[in-house]
C-alpha cells in the first residue's frame, strides 16, 4: 500500500515535470521563432545612427515612424503595392475559376481517358516549372508579351495542377446523392456545378483563392524574367530594386519588407482555419 502510493506519487511528479519541460521548450521555441519578426519591426523604426551599432538596441531611443513615410517618398512603393495587388487578384480569379471547373470534371464526370488524364495531372504536379521556363519565355517574347503582365496572369486561367487536385479531393467528399437528386429534378451538369458543388465548396475555394493570391504576391522569379519597366514592378521586384539601387539603408528596407508582408499576414489571420485545413487536405489525404 505504502509502496504503491509512493510509486503513484513519483509517477505523478514525473508527469508534472514532463509538462513543465514541454511548456519550457515550447515557450523558448516560440520566442526564437518570433525574434526575426521583432528584429524587423525594431529595425524599421530606428534612427539611422542606431542601426549600425554593436551591440544592437532592441528598443530604439526614439521611434522614427517617419521611416514608414519615407519609403513611399523615396520609391514608388505605393505603385509597387498596387501592381502586386492587380497581378495577385487576377491570378487568384483565374485560378479559382479554371481549377474549380477542371476539378469538377475529375471529381464527378465520366469520360474516356479520365484515368490517363488524371495521371498526367499528378505528374505535372511534380514537374518543376524551371523545365519549361526558357521555351515559355521564347514563346511569350514571340507574342510580344515580354514587359507586360500577361505571362504572369494568363497561365493562371488555364489551371494549376496542385489546386485542381486539391479541389478534386474536396469535391469527392460532397455526397453524390445531392447530384442525383438534382438530376431527377431536371438539373443539368453545369447546373449541378453552379448550384450544388460551388456553394458547398466555399472553404476549399477559399483555400485556393488565398494560396494563389499568396503565391502571386510572393512570386519573384516570374516578374524578374518578364518585367523591366520600373513603374510596372510588383513589390517583390521593388524591394529588390531598393536593395540594389542605393546605399543599403536597412531601417528603410525593413520597413518596406514589413509593409510587403502585411497583406499575406492579414489574409492568414482572417482565414487561419481555412489555411490550416487546406494544408491538411492536400497534405495528409494526398
Amino acid at each position: 500500500m505504502q509502496r504503491k502510493r509512493v510509486l503513484l506519487h513519483s509517477k505523478k511528479r514525473r508527469a508534472i515535470l514532463g509538462k513543465i519541460i514541454v511548456y519550457f521548450l515550447l515557450v523558448v521555441g516560440a520566442i526564437v521563432f518570433l525574434v526575426p519578426f521583432i528584429w524587423m519591426l525594431s529595425t524599421s523604426v530606428k534612427p539611422p545612427e542606431e542601426v549600425y551599432i554593436f551591440p544592437p538596441k532592441w528598443i530604439p531611443s526614439r521611434f522614427v515612424w517617419e521611416n514608414y513615410v519615407k519609403i513611399f517618398e523615396l520609391m514608388p512603393t505605393g505603385r509597387f503595392l498596387l501592381n502586386s495587388l492587380v497581378i495577385s487578384c487576377l491570378t487568384m480569379a483565374g485560378s479559382v475559376i479554371s481549377c474549380s471547373l477542371v476539378g469538377f470534371a475529375f471529381a464527378r464526370l465520366r469520360f474516356r481517358g479520365s484515368g490517363i488524364l488524371f495521371f498526367i495531372l499528378l505528374i505535372t504536379m511534380m514537374l518543376p516549372h524551371q523545365v519549361t521556363m526558357v521555351p515559355l519565355y521564347m514563346i511569350f517574347s514571340k507574342l510580344g508579351w515580354v514587359g507586360t503582365y500577361f505571362p504572369l496572369i494568363v497561365p493562371a486561367f488555364f489551371g494549376n495542377p496542385y489546386f485542381i487536385f486539391l479541389l478534386r479531393q474536396f469535391f469527392t467528399t460532397i455526397p453524390k446523392e445531392l447530384d442525383e437528386a438534382a438530376k431527377v429534378d431536371g438539373c443539368s451538369i453545369p447546373g449541378i456545378f453552379a448550384r450544388i458543388i460551388v456553394p458547398m465548396s466555399k472553404p476549399a475555394l477559399g483555400i485556393v483563392a488565398i494560396l494563389s493570391f499568396t503565391d502571386a504576391w510572393n512570386d519573384f522569379m516570374g516578374p524578374l524574367i518578364y518585367l523591366s519597366e520600373f513603374t510596372k514592378f510588383p513589390i517583390s521586384l521593388g524591394l529588390r530594386a531598393f536593395q540594389t539601387l542605393r546605399v543599403v539603408q536597412w531601417e528603410l528596407l525593413m520597413a518596406t519588407s514589413a509593409i510587403a508582408l502585411i497583406p499575406v499576414l492579414v489574409l492568414f489571420f482572417l482565414a487561419q482555419k481555412n489555411y490550416i485545413q487546406g494544408i491538411v487536405i492536400s497534405g495528409v489525404k494526398g
Binding site: 521563432f33 510572393n218 517583390s236 518596406t256 499576414l265
Partner: peptide
C-alpha cells in the same frame, strides 16, 4: 510556429 512558413520571397530574404 506556422507563421514564418506563410511568408516567403524577397522580404524574408532581406530580413
Amino acid at each position: 510556429y506556422y507563421l514564418p512558413s506563410v511568408i516567403s520571397g524577397v522580404a524574408v530574404s532581406l530580413l
